[in-house]
């Protein structure tokens, strides 16, 4: 069982009059073994949701629970639980240390499990993970510069998997990639969902991509969750006008764009 729950979380940047609410009392539940899509445009606060879940940004109000344990405070139990939430970043070029071989980067993921392991065990595990993301394990000693963007993104996924996360957060992981590479990464995620029973919060501005990987979806705008529900339901019968506007804006292959009301 692993369930991630955002309970009325708020994030405020700055102080006094200049303060801005990046996230405004947002509720969101990522259910065990499912993928929850979070869609929104730039500035909607969706990336802040990712950052607070892994502790990169503190929350100003509300709480985030992993299987009922609050992971937002400084208590050791909270800190330990937080390691079970892992994240894959948007930019595969800055997400890997340029001076560290990719095998060592992935081995770093083993830290989060809290288990001490021998060098041989670590190597075997790195080997297995690279295999899992379809990268030749013999290349473990190479530096990130030897890999393409799509390959790097698969390596960062392997690093996150090494931590054996209860919940994986994917923040715009395909938006820096070419469409043909995007397909490869999305297929890998699907494969992992099925084989590992992965629980995932999938954040993207691309509605079609969110629809493809998610079981449930939340739509975010100006720090608020404006709509959520089962993917098919929300996208087939959007309630919120903003969701409808988003849906209308997505270009459909081979169909002339409807621009008169833009």
């Amino acid at each position: 069982m692993s369930e991630l729950e955002f309970r009325a979380v708020s994030v405020r940047y700055g102080h006094g009059r200049a303060a801005q609410l990046a996230v405004d009392a947002a509720d969101l539940v990522v259910r065990d073994g499912t993928t929850h899509g979070l869609v929104g445009e730039s500035g909607s606060g969706k990336s802040t949701m990712a950052r607070i879940a892994v502790g990169l940004t503190p929350v100003s109000g509300g709480s985030i629970l992993l299987d009922g344990v609050d992971i937002t405070d400084r208590a050791p139990a909270s800190r330990l639980a937080r390691r079970r939430v892992q994240m894959v970043f948007q930019d595969p070029f800055s997400a890997l240390d340029p001076r560290m071989p990719i095998g060592s980067s992935i081995a770093e993921g083993l830290l989060a499990t809290g288990r001490r392991s021998s060098r041989l065990d670590r190597e075997a595990r790195v080997h297995e993970l690279l295999d899992r993301v379809h990268i030749d394990p013999r290349r473990a000693g190479e530096s990130p510069s030897a890999f393409s963007g799509g390959q790097r993104q698969r390596i960062t996924i392997a690093r996150a998997l090494a931590a054996e996360p209860a919940v994986l957060i994917a923040d715009e992981i395909t938006s820096a990639l070419d469409v043909s590479v995007q397909g490869v990464v999305l297929n890998l995620l699907r494969e992992l969902q099925q084989e590992l029973h992965l629980t995932m919060l999938f954040i993207s501005h691309n509605l079609a991509v969110v629809r493809y990987v998610s079981d449930e979806v939340s739509v975010m705008r100006a720090g608020r969750i404006v709509e959520h529900g089962g993917t098919e339901t929300v996208l087939a019968h959007p309630e919120d006008p903003y969701t409808r506007e988003l849906l209308r804006s997505v270009p459909v292959m081979g169909e002339p764009l409807e621009l008169e009301d833009a």
Partner: peptide, 25 residues
């Protein structure tokens, strides 16, 4: 990516989306 724009009606002028101003607020 993290600054929420002031709430505007959907059909009105678009909200700022410059990478330069995005970030820590």
């Amino acid at each position: 990516m993290t600054i929420p724009p002031a709430p505007t009606p959907i059909t009105a002028a678009p909200t700022p989306s410059t990478p330069a101003t995005a970030g820590r607020g």
